[in-house]
Design a protein around this nucleic acid. Structure first.
Length: 303
DNA sequence: TTTGTGCCTTAGCT
DNA sequence: AAGCTAAGGCACA
C-alpha cells in the first residue's frame, strides 16, 4: 500500500479514485538493482548511498532495494507509475528466461555470479544516441558525454535534492545543434555521427516510427542505414530499447569471452562466433549476453 | 566475398 | 612525459 506521503488527486475526475503518492513500491524478486543500473545498458544512473538516482524520459526518480521489491521516490505525488514499471520491466519472469539458457558450464557459472541481473526497457532515441557515443569509450566516459548533452540541451525537470535534473535532449534539439557544439560535449569523432542520426531520423531517411513494430532483422537494417551505426550498436538498441530478447550484441569483450569460454582450443573466425552467438543461446540470448559480459569482466583476465 | 589495417577524437591511466 | 587504450564503424587494400 502507498505510504504516508500520499494525497488525493482532485484535479481530474478520472484520477479521483487513484492515490497520488511520492513513493511507490514494486513487488519483485531477484532484481539486482545496482548491477542492472550500472551494467552499461543505461548511462544516467548515479549511486547515492543505498539508493540510485536517475532520469527516465522527463522524470527524475530515486530507486532503492526494499524487502520484497523496489521502492521508487518521485519529486512530487503522482498516480502514474506505469513508465517506471515498464522501464524496470518488473513483471519480467527472470526465472523462466534463465531456464531457457543452455546448460553448459560457462553459461551456468555466469548466471550464478550475478543472479539478479536484468534487462531495462529504454527509450529508442536515448538508447540509440547513447550507443552511438559508446564507440571505444568506457562506461564512465559515456556517462560524462550523456550528462553534458543533457545539461546543455535537455529540458530541465523537477528533482529532489540540491542539483537540478535534465531530460535527455530530444531528436529535434540535437538535430538543431552544430557539430562544434556536440564536439564541445567531448563527443570527438562521434559528434557527426550523432548529428547525422538525428537529422536522418527527422528527414525520414529511415523508418524510425515503424521500428517498434518491425522484426529484429528489419529494424536492424533500418538502424544500420545511419552513419556510425553498425550491427553492434543496432543490436544494443534492439535489445535495450526494443525488447528483442533473442538479439545478442557482439562487441570486443563478448568476442573474447566467447573464445575463451566456449572455444578455448581454437580461434574461430568472427563470422563463426557470430553464428554461434545467434544459434546457441536461445530465445533470451540478449539476457544471456549480459550475464556472460559481466562474468567475463569479473572472472576472466581478458586481453 | 572475406579478413586485416589505419583512421577518426578524447581523457585517464601508466 | 609521451604512449596506450577504450561495450565501434568505415574506407580501402
Amino acid at each position: 500500500m502507498p505510504n504516508s506521503e500520499s494525497s488525493w488527486s482532485k484535479s481530474h475526475p478520472a484520477e479521483r479514485r487513484t492515490l497520488a503518492t511520492k513513493t511507490k513500491s514494486f513487488a519483485v524478486e531477484n532484481y539486482d538493482l545496482g548491477a542492472t543500473l550500472s551494467s552499461g545498458q543505461a548511462f544516467r544512473w548515479q549511486p547515492l548511498g543505498q539508493a540510485w538516482e536517475g532520469v527516465i524520459g522527463e522524470r527524475w526518480v530515486r530507486l532503492r532495494l526494499a524487502k520484497r521489491g523496489i521502492t521508487a521516490e518521485a519529486p512530487s505525488p503522482t498516480n502514474d507509475w506505469a513508465w517506471l514499471e515498464k522501464y524496470l520491466d518488473t513483471r519480467f519472469d527472470l526465472g523462466q528466461a534463465i531456464s531457457t539458457f543452455p546448460e553448459d558450464e560457462p553459461m551456468q557459472n555466469a548466471v550464478a555470479t550475478l543472479p539478479g541481473l536484468r534487462l531495462l526497457r529504454q527509450d529508442y532515441w536515448e538508447c540509440l544516441a547513447s550507443f552511438i557515443l559508446s564507440a571505444t569509450k568506457q562506461i564512465v566516459q559515456i556517462q560524462q558525454m550523456v550528462a553534458l548533452l543533457a545539461e546543455r540541451y535537455g529540458k530541465p525537470i523537477a528533482s529532489v535534492g540540491d542539483s537540478p535534473a535534465f531530460a535527455f535532449p530530444t531528436i529535434e534539439r540535437i538535430a538543431a545543434c552544430s557539430e562544434a557544439e556536440l564536439r564541445d560535449c567531448k563527443l570527438g569523432f562521434r559528434a557527426p555521427n550523432l548529428l547525422g542520426a538525428a537529422r536522418d531520423i527527422l528527414d525520414g531517411n529511415i523508418a524510425w516510427q515503424q521500428l517498434p513494430e518491425m522484426t529484429s532483422a528489419d529494424a536492424r537494417g533500418e538502424l544500420m542505414k545511419l552513419r556510425g551505426v553498425g550491427q553492434k550498436i543496432a543490436d544494443c538498441v534492439l535489445l535495450f530499447a526494443g525488447g528483442h530478447q533473442e538479439v545478442f550484441p557482439v562487441d570486443v569483450w563478448i568476442e573474447r569471452a566467447l573464445q575463451r569460454l566456449f572455444f578455448p582450443k581454437r580461434k574461430p573466425t568472427a563470422k563463426r562466433l557470430r553464428h554461434f552467438a545467434d544459434t546457441h543461446f536461445g530465445p533470451h540470448a540478449g539476457l544471456a549476453q549480459q550475464y556472460l559480459f559481466h562474468y567475463a569482466r569479473v572472472h576472466l583476465k581478458l586481453k
